[in-house]
């Protein structure tokens, strides 16, 4: 009997917790509606398309290829990124470069974003710092699979 009463008190306490959340949040919502700026908001929601959460600098987003000072891609087609890629979404075709210092440049460099898992291993593996994932672009959805295959021109942009 006493145990049942204890349960009942705990149940009441639980109800009071949700009630407190409701009341406190409602006070802040009403203050907002009345135009008073409060330090705390009534809800933690970020209203997505209008407000966006700030993307952290280390966030792994859409890839980009870096350029040399003369505008050519830094990539030397060493195929390390192709080797390390766990979802095998990078395809690189090498070609010769007249500059003996460089020797190889990519003729084709495509990333199939529909397969990419954004692990960032390609960035880690690259010896030339040619590929980075710091564009802060996360809205890369598209209507067809074809549009998600990014080639050299798109990645260099």
């Amino acid at each position: 009997m006493i145990k049942a009463l204890e349960y009942f008190i705990e149940i009441l306490k639980g109800g009071l917790i949700t009630c407190r959340h409701f009341m406190v949040n409602m006070v802040f919502h009403i203050l907002r509606v009345l135009g008073l700026k409060t330090r705390r908001k009534g809800a933690v929601t970020i209203q997505y398309p209008e407000e966006k959460k700030e993307i952290a600098p280390r966030h792994r987003s859409l890839h980009r290829l870096m350029r040399r000072e003369d505008g050519k891609p830094r990539c030397v087609s060493c195929l390390l990124c192709v080797t390390v890629c766990p979802s095998e979404c990078i395809y690189v075709e090498a070609s010769e470069d007249p500059d003996p210092e460089v020797q190889k440049v990519p003729a084709k460099f495509t990333i199939d974003l529909s397969r990419c898992c954004f692990c960032g291993f390609c960035v880690e593996a690259c010896p030339e710092d040619a590929i980075r994932m710091d564009t802060a672009k996360v809205e890369i959805a598209d209507y067809t699979r074809k549009d998600l295959i990014f080639d050299l021109d798109k990645l260099l942009r």
Binding site: F22, N25, A43, T45
Partner: peptide
Amino acid sequence: KESAVIQDRI
């Protein structure tokens, strides 16, 4: 709305 306010949502 009430469930949202209880759970700190909108």
